[in-house]
Write a protein that binds this DNA or RNA. Sequence first.
RNA 1: GUGACUGUAGCUCAGCUGGUUAGAGCAUCGGCCUGUGGCGCCGAGGGUCGCGGGUUCGAACCCCGUCAGUCACCCCA
Length: 422
Amino acid sequence: MPSKLAAPRGTQDIFPPQSGRWQELEARIHALARRYGYGEIRTPVFESTELFVRGVGETSDIVEKEMYTFQDKGDRSMTLRPEWTAPVVRAALQHGLFTQGPQRLYYLGPIFRYERPQAGRYRQSHQFGIECAGYEQPEADAEVISLAWDLLQAYKIAGVTLKINSIGDETCRPKYREALRAHFLPHRDSLSADSQRRLERNPLRVLDSKAAEDRELVASAPAFEDFLCAECRAHFDAVKRALDAGGIAYEVDSQIVRGLDYYTRTVFEFRSGALGAQNTICAGGRYDGLVGSLGGPDVPAVGFALGLERFLWAIESAGASEEARREGVQAIAIGAQALQELLPLVAALRHTSGWPIFIDYGDRKLLAQLKMADRNNARYALILGEQELAEGRIVLRDLVTRTDRPLPFGKDTLEALGEMRE
RNA sequence: GUGACUGUAGCUCAGCUGGUUAGAGCAUCGGCCUGUGGCGCCGAGGGUCGCGGGUUCGAACCCCGUCAGUCACCCCA
């Protein structure tokens, strides 16, 4: 706290053991994506500002006030990635992926948004997401939702609900927009200031409002489901059927709209009741027009983004704090000579055993080093002191059962240790 | 961008209505202990009381400003 150099607002440093939980989640994500046939894409952390303005939408909150934008030395306007979909599409276009048939890609990494931080909201946060491009079929929507579902199920987080909706396409959305306008316009003056503005620019967004004065009007607003064109209705029905067939529990919620401009047809959110005000941990939908609007061919696509910070928070509040397993060996030398003798064994163990090998160079007493072993959560201690040195032995102490076992010290030690492994 | 609350040791916090050299627990280091641990006992180091200004004989405490943190709003992962 006295340090003047602190991490920037809304960012965080992650240490053990917390970093271990990140690694575990990330490993699970990579494995899951692989099982669904998705390959990882990595893109630059910053992009040309124009990409996000065009991709995310000029009137979206992200572009209007949340971007980390700067001029580089060549006087180009650059922006730290506030979301992944636009960069993924850009990269796929740049390298001609869309001429090579359907693409299944996933990403895992940081995003940046200039916002006031609060519980579950950061200026640098991390997202896992997937993009399934090249299929307009509802099976793709179901696949994407199913992958997210599997990840959430794997952690058995209670109180997570999946809400889905359809926000139509170019055919039916204008009609619905008009119906919404007709619904709200007579009561315009009783709406919140924000909603009045939204009514002008994008009436769909009024449904997003949580303002108390808007609640009643929003609840009584017409549902998009009643305005869907035949094609969109058929698509939505097929998505629901596929989810049913997959045993995925969902709830149709006509108020799910999503903040980004590029969504079409299916939109969905996973929310956790265990979190604070920011309770959406995963959200996504279909964006059939985005690739075309970024100058590419007419490629339909569907995807989601999942916030890792919120997901980890949900996992933790589910209370699954399991005891750290004891693992590895604390190599203990007593005295300078013993240390020199022990070092080659430490090196050999690090190369061959697969265990974490801990060692202290501080010339501490046995007792102190055993305490270190506890702190390191080591399973065994390998003790080499004067007596052992003189007798050509080394003591392997099981730190759980507290039993000692003398082993020959020398070239047989590794072999003897190998027998310890199950 | 707006609002509320908070800011004392590495961490968690105490510090009564402003009154001498600012405390505790945990953690760290050392000792008890020439070699058998998570416990115990003893001791040590570590603080511009977020920062700046003001009121006062005197401020960690009161006032103003500022910065930071937390939560909430808007909105979102």
